[in-house]
Computed example of a mutant assay.
Amino acid sequence: MIKLLKKYKAFIIGFIIIIPIFYLLDYFGFIILPKERSLEIIIYAIFWGIVIALPVHHFKKNKKTVIKVLSLFVLFFIAFIIDGYMKMPDNPITFILLMGFWVGFAYVLVPTFIKKYWKLITFIYVPLFLYFIYLRLFSGDLEAYLKIKEDLPFFIFLIPIPILFLVWIFEQWKWVQNLKAEKAKTELSLLRAQINPHFFFNTLNNLYALTIKNSEQAPDVILKLSDMMRYTIYEGEKETVKLIDEIDYLNNYIELHKIRYKKSVEITFNHTIDANTTIAPLLFIILLENAFKHGIETLTENAFIHINLYEDADYIHFDIENNFDPNEVNESKGIGLQNLKRRLSLLYNQKHELIVDKMSNIYKTTLKISKHA
């Protein structure tokens, strides 16, 4: 509590200072405090206490802002001194000075908003200002003006304030949405960077062994690995890719693994898709990688992976099934499936379905993604 008071002590000082200032101004006739409306006085005191506190609070952080606020504060009191000296109802000079104060204060608080919407603000307030000047100076004498003012609902001069406030609220909402989108984009980039690093390392090790043996398979491995790395780096950064390209990527992955294994492995990959269908890249590879890592690599014989990729009018379906050795316990939890779930929630929120079934010695994973996301 003490730390909080120290941090915001400037605002406490502001409230303490403004109360005697109010009563001094009331004493000398510059303002009239509505003594029967104490709540109104409290609201005014809070507002002007904040105005006084702002330059004190930001003095060490931004001295230019402090100077601007103090200048506006001086302008405000000049307006009241002139108004008190001239004793003219709805003095145009006071009105102009106060308008300058409020516009300047809004600019200090939300400069970006004022710069962006200055044309709208001008379009709203210049006609109102000219209308006021016309009524005050050219509608007849003071009695005629006061009669018009009495009959005219002057709240119309306050209508633009909530309109501009709503526009500002909309700007803040857009800013928050953009911030969320940028955060999601950054997170997606980090998640993509986690895909397949250990696969590439393993393949490079296998390639090293093949080159030592002068194996005829080495050039083919280099070519496939190059294609996969290119796809991961360049296509993986795109929002969507053609599903046919994703299939080629998966086939390269399968062929590279076939070269690694000396045992009998049954791998089937059936796909029936439209060549123009698109999808977010590198979603299926994690499921395929898990099938190899937690399935085939745990078995010495009769290992299999069955893959079906197809689509209907509304969804893309990816089914993958593999067997595994239930006696082989893998302590490594890994990040692959968690990575995939997070990416799906960012890319296809509420428009996808991921089901993982584990039977006695078979894993079956079904991923369904909406084509209308």
Rank of each mutant, 00 (worst) to 15 (best):
L146P: 02
F155H: 15
W168Y: 04
L191N: 00
N196C: 02
E237R: 09
M228P: 01
Y231N: 06
L179K: 15
N252S: 05
N252E: 09
N206L: 07
L135W: 05
D151A: 14
L207F: 06
L166I: 10
N206E: 04
A275V: 09
K180S: 10
K224P: 02
I273E: 01
K149D: 08
I163M: 11
K180A: 03
D151Y: 10
K180L: 10
A218G: 04
L190F: 15
K180N: 13
E246N: 04
E187C: 08
S189Y: 15
I195H: 12
I222L: 00
F200Y: 02
A209Q: 10
A275L: 04
L166K: 03
F138R: 00
I247W: 04
N196W: 04
K224V: 03
N270H: 07
E237F: 00
E216M: 02
I212A: 02
I169M: 03
K238W: 09
L207G: 10
H271W: 02
E143L: 14
F170S: 11
M229L: 06
L190N: 14
E266V: 09
L142I: 04
F155Q: 14
T232W: 09
A144E: 15
E150F: 14
L135D: 12
F170W: 08
A218N: 01
T240E: 07
T211Y: 05
L164E: 06
H257K: 03
I156G: 12
K149P: 00
V265R: 00
V167E: 00
I159V: 15
K258C: 07
E246M: 03
K147I: 14
F154M: 15
N252L: 10
L190W: 14
G140H: 09
F154I: 15
Y261F: 13
Y234I: 14
L243H: 04
D151F: 12
P160S: 05
F165M: 07
V241W: 00
D227Y: 09
E235W: 01
L204V: 07
I148T: 13
F170R: 07
V265M: 01
L243Y: 11
D248Q: 13
I233A: 06
